[in-house]
Design a protein around this nucleic acid. Sequence first.
RNA 1: GCCCCGGUAGCUCAGCUGGAUAGAGCAACGGACUUCUAAUCCGUAGGCCACAGGUUCGAAUCCUGUCCGGGGUACCA
Length: 544
Amino acid sequence: MPQRQNTPMTILPQLIQGLADSLSALGLPERDIKLSPPNNPDFGDLSTNVALTLAKETGQNPVQIANDIKDSLALPAGLIEEISVTPPGFLNFRIGSEYYYQVLAHILADSNYGKGTSGKGQKANVEFVSANPTGPLTVGHGRQAVLGDCVARILEWNGYDVTREYYYNDAGRQMRILGQSVEARYFKIKLPEDGYQGNYIKDIAEKVRTEKGNNVASGDPVFRGKAEEIIFQDISDSLKNLNVHHDIFSNERTFYDTGAIDKTVSDLENEGLVYGADGATWFKTTAVGMDQDRVLIKSTGEPTYRLPDIAYHRNKFERKFDFIVDIFGADHSDTYPDVLAALKALDYNTDKVRVLIHQFVTLIRGGEKVKMSTRKGDFVTLAELTEEVGADVVRYFFIMRGMNSHLNFDLDLAADQSEKNPVYYLQYAHARICNIIKHGEAMGLSIDADYDPKLLDNPSEIRLLKKLEQFPTVVENVMQSLEPQTIANYLHDTANRFHKFYSECRVVTDDTKLSNARIALVKATRNVIANGLNILGISAPEKM
RNA sequence: GCCCCGGUAGCUCAGCUGGAUAGAGCAACGGACUUCUAAUCCGUAGGCCACAGGUUCGAAUCCUGUCCGGGGUACCA
């Protein structure tokens, strides 16, 4: 797991250390001390409930404990302005502006402000999208594409060397039926049962006709091959338009060719976890705590998806990744426990694997749910959506909500009211700042001039600074949770405080000293917003 | 039946590793542009955080149960 880390000037560890020392000096039991900003700013900038957690064990009044801690606390001078104790026993700290001025200087000196180092020197793999090339990507896939890319960006932002990977099954039933569907359209005969009905299949069939003529034999691999080629090109284009790319495309067939599939079966067999029954080969999942055994190889001789998945994940381990992230839709949530169980049985450290499951997107159009099915050719494609509202809007829509939420995506709202899309709120803040700086330059201000931070004493200025100070902490938390919406929420708050500041404080004025100080604040804000948007893969426009 | 998610303002959703008065956007209503961008800001209204128990000094947050919705529960992926 990534280690908690802080930039040198961060105040949190100093306070926590001071509190821990204080507990020990008072002869109180040790505690994992948590400090967080209280909801009500009247209480201060940081609060801890440590005294409350000690009350029961020591039998003392929590307010008394808090006061004892307060009295015995030894802290570096100058940073803390006020310590207070409030019922039922909170210990509150008001941090002096001096600290925030130091933070401001730090942000301006470091364009990578907020960057973490917990993944430095380590390799990570993020597998996402991984849709089989049976049809265009739908809006549903878009959520995973954006989530996966943002997770990858978060890892990169924390120092990981990230491989973005796309895995697909090209040896199974789905692709076989795809080929048969194209063939049926080519010969203008009835589609196979469960065949793909979309019009794109007809287009592929006609492409085969154009390139190979009218006499292609039934069963020719060109049908499937052409379909895979054309559909994959379409998928790549859709992702590219969303600003998403993959470094590696892995496919199932490879693992047959290398013998990895057979080896996986025999290795599991050696562990006593494989048996034959009813003509099929079974994985004895019940022996590793699952509630039912699962089929590895069907009686037809064809493996289920499970077997190649296991071989594939072994392959990831063999490629020496320190951190492996799998991103699946909720429809696959039942498959990964078997895969992890197999890996564990084969002695791989599954702590390195993190599986993220996201819930589905329900499309709403005209106030009604849109039913989608790739097989029936009934869907809204990701490409259409991106084309209509733009990559930034699509990305923000998908990332602003938690992956566990069953997202309702109102197509009309996204299209008709895109002017009011919240992503513009963030981008507008950035563009405004750029314009202020440009204006300042035009008015003859030196943008990199020395400034006196003490001139930043308006409440809206301090509030903005306090928000900027939180950025590294937010990044750390997101590195742990891998929930990008936290970044989106943070950026919204930051933009909100900036816009408030903007409405109350004019930056460029005749007062050069004040202007210089405010330019510094504004530049720091730009730095944070730009870095945050970058983590989300959303552009930071200089003008709008 | 069993498993995984969710149920918070009219709508879409944050907040959930327990904290003090539950938030945002949209929708509604009322204000603010001779100023660095009004894609903004300020204000009003809107809530039994599905329901019922439990744990706790303290529960939207944790536990149990019920109800409702999504997904899974294949020799499909």
